[in-house]
């Protein structure tokens, strides 16, 4: 595997982690997931009587994509820890995408509860991938608490506003010794590429694909955007200059 993404003890050849929320049906989701090339994809935990049942798990199994349960909707550390425990029991994985949300309008992470939940889950043996603010200080604290990956937002969930504070993302990347995954806010492929050019190890997105007019085509665009950005980051871009510099010889 060339240039794999390594999180905890696992390796992935794809640096695009997908979410499953927002797809109009499972057939659309399936085509989008295949086109994205993803190997790891989030699912939410909800009451078993809700329509749609376990179809999504069967789909992921069939596509050989690992499910990554999240704690979406949780507002406190206690709720998030219980949801993670339920997910571990239902899905037989100790990996979890930890989310603790402050309020419904912004869906921004609640930092105090988030750190508390992260500490508790690490102690309980979970591999914790943490959805966090684009706050370099909090990212470091989560890493110290044992997070296996820190996943700062580019902008609030579902907004498609891209990466609002690229410098903060670079600060997070520059100090992290665990993978940094740009999670939330991506609207189109250039923004996924930018995340990778800033040095992120991977991108996690859902809405940008599942609610695009053509989810399958956007999934392919995201796949290529992520790999283009990764290559560009590794290649080392030229410095920016104020004045032009001819690329052809003078005579």
């Amino acid at each position: 595997m060339r240039d794999p993404l390594v999180i905890a003890d696992r390796k992935y050849s794809s640096r695009l982690i997908m979410g499953t929320g927002g797809a109009s049906n499972l057939a659309v989701l399936e085509r989008a997931l295949v086109a994205s090339g993803t190997e790891l994809t989030t699912v939410a935990m909800r009451r078993a009587d809700v329509e749609g049942g376990t179809g999504v798990l069967d789909l992921l199994r069939r596509l050989n994509i690992e499910p990554l349960p999240n704690t979406a909707g949780c507002r406190s550390a206690a709720e998030a820890v219980l949801t993670a425990q339920l997910a571990r029991e239902a899905l037989e994985t100790n990996w979890v995408k930890l989310e603790v949300i402050a309020d419904e309008r912004t869906l921004l992470p609640e930092p105090v509860e988030l750190l508390d939940a992260c500490e508790q889950l690490v102690r309980d043996g979970f591999t914790v991938l943490v959805y966090t603010n684009d706050d370099p200080v909090l990212a470091l604290r989560l890493e110290e608490a044992g997070a296996a990956a820190v996943m700062p937002l580019g902008s609030p969930i579902g907004t498609g506003l891209g990466i609002r504070n690229p410098h903060n993302i670079e600060l997070i990347v520059s100090r992290a010794s665990v993978p940094v995954v740009l999670d939330a806010g991506i609207g189109t492929a250039s923004e996924a590429a930018l995340a990778m050019e800033l040095g992120c190890d991977a991108v996690l997105l859902a809405t940008a694909v599942t609610r695009a007019q053509d989810p399958e085509r956007m999934a392919e665009a995201m796949r290529d955007g992520v790999s283009a950005g990764r290559l560009a980051w590794g290649a080392g871009r030229i410095p920016k200059r104020f004045w032009a510099q001819a690329s052809s010889p003078p005579r």
Binding site: A44, R46, T54
Partner: peptide, 10 residues
Amino acid sequence: IEVLTAVQGG
């Protein structure tokens, strides 16, 4: 009693 399962999300 809460009975939970995985659904589309995230």
